[in-house]
Design a binder for these strands. Structure first.
Lengths: 295, 295
DNA sequence: AACTAAACATGAACTAAACTCATAACCAAC
DNA sequence: GTTGGTTATGAGTTTAGTTCATGTTTAGTT
């Protein structure tokens, strides 16, 4: 129905002011355009512009299309441009750092899929992770950082990958297991098991317990699977992203509970230098992540 | 080349995972799609996805197109929807208030053009103007406000119309006329002529002189043309938007000078209630303003 | 390794859409 | 009314898109 061709016509018509000029600009005959627009007007069942003035005067409907054209055409051009670029790419390495341990669950398959298309691009994610990777990104020692927190938004581009819910996991016979959701108070005396990350950088403290009193203990474990086993054995509770939790919960190994009445939703971003945001390889990595999110 | 049709195909392919399913979804034969995509791939000179997996696996190039589709298709649908709405509109009145006197210069022709298409919609701009119109917009006594300042951004939608430059105008033989630009200090002892608006709401004070010392006098005039005559006669200086200044300057009646080395650029917004931002009549008024800006 | 079912590819024939050409109609300015 | 510009229209042609019938590929099964 509406076509990119039509948007081009409308946009050019706005610039040139008449059908004849538009025809010349688009390498078509005036007749072709006259037919084209008449057909479009018939299909949309409305008039798009008045032809008896110079320049032509757009109707409200014409302006809506013009507005659409102004939004869409630049995007189409940008994509065409990226397509060309993507076919000959000098990049050979992506140095990636991950702030969220649980991400490896979907990240490894994602990287594998990505490497199918860019076998020459080596992804180096073998960095320690309990550190702040943003400075390394700024100083060009890293290319990409997977993170939930936005820092230095002026210097870096944060591409939103997806949102996830942080859930509390407890043993099925834990007293909290019956609750529809937990409050910060409920956690006051619990043992919280987590990856070895400083407390102030853990989502559950930073965004849930916050200033509430916490008298329980913190236990660090560097093995993801171990967390589930410890929780299942009733040795403590843990806060993990929903995508990690779901498979274990459906096995009945643990029970998951929302943090707060509304649950705690957190975003996941891919941070990169601002000038890299249009790079086709980066975009491909981004898109691959999005398609594989939370599985 | 790239067509909306193609974007639909790609988007559906992502959802359904195979050509056969996509064909069924789009009411086409599998063969048609196979041809369609082959043609597209030939034109773009790249492969868009691997067909030998289930679901199909997109190449970097395919993902770029998919990304484009996700951006563009919703906009196209929204426009189609607005087009339909625009053809039968119950609105019969637009109550408009204008915070910038100088806007009448382009606003009156704009309204005339607008009324060509919506003869039944009466625009009521006959309100006093040296007052803050935003509260009336919030309390539903107004529909639209033309303003340069954003207030209450949570409750109102501010559609950007255009940017303009505020210029200082002086008599051609005025001592400032030789300068490439003026500083706040240059104005210290000048007589500033303006519309009858309180000093703290005048752009030249709010955004240029600011806290700098001003020992000159303020003269109020409620007639636009009179300002030019007074300035031309050397009775004072004035700050006005570029679109008003240009015609008089080319006649040699006055001389205009940028405010500050970089000039003083100001935006112009059309403020409305948030739920009105998709209304086709409002959009048409907005678009008409944009097309007539600063003339 | 052979078989099967499901998915995709291909070529020829057909259809519908889009374009051109020639010409007519229209409008504004002189 | 004539002129110089514009847009509209109808018939004929070209091109792009579709279907049909059939061939090929692939993953999964025995």
């Amino acid at each position: 129905m509406i076509d990119i061709k039509h948007l081009k016509t409308i946009a050019t018509l706005k610039d040139t002011g008449s059908l004849v000029n538009t025809a010349r600009e688009l390498f078509l005959t005036q007749s072709a355009l006259s037919h084209q627009i008449k057909d479009l007007e018939n299909k949309l069942d409305c008039q798009l512009f008045e032809r008896k003035t110079q320049p032509v005067r757009f109707t409200p409907q014409g302006m809506l299309l013009l507005e659409l054209a102004n939004e869409v055409l630049p995007k189409v051009e940008a994509t065409k441009c990226r397509l060309k670029e993507s076919l000959n790419q000098p990049i050979s390495q992506l140095r990636l750092s991950v702030e969220c341990h649980a991400c490896f669950h979907w990240l490894l398959p994602t990287i594998k899929e990505f490497n199918n298309f860019w076998p020459d691009i080596k992804i180096d994610y073998e960095r320690g992770f309990s550190y702040d990777a943003i400075p390394d990104l700024l100083s060009d020692e890293l290319d990409l950082v997977l993170t939930s927190d936005i820092r230095e938004p002026d210097k870096l581009e944060y591409a939103h990958l997806f949102d996830f819910k942080l859930k509390l996991i407890v043993a099925p016979d834990h007293e909290l297991a019956k609750k529809a959701y937990v409050t910060a108070l409920d956690l006051k005396n619990e043992t919280i098991i987590s990856y070895p990350i400083p407390r102030e950088r853990q989502d559950i403290f930073k965004h849930f317990i916050q200033n509430a009193r916490f008298d329980g203990t913190l236990k660090n474990v560097d093995q993801g699977l171990l967390i589930f086993q410890l929780v299942s054995a009733g040795m403590g509770v843990a806060a993990l992203p929903d995508w990690l939790v779901t498979p274990y919960e459906s096995q009945g190994l643990i029970k998951s509970i929302p943090l707060g009445a509304l649950g705690l939703t957190r975003p996941m971003y891919l941070a990169m230098k601002k000038d890299m945001k249009d790079n086709p390889v980066y975009r491909h990595f981004l898109n691959t992540c999005k398609l594989n999110n939370g599985r």
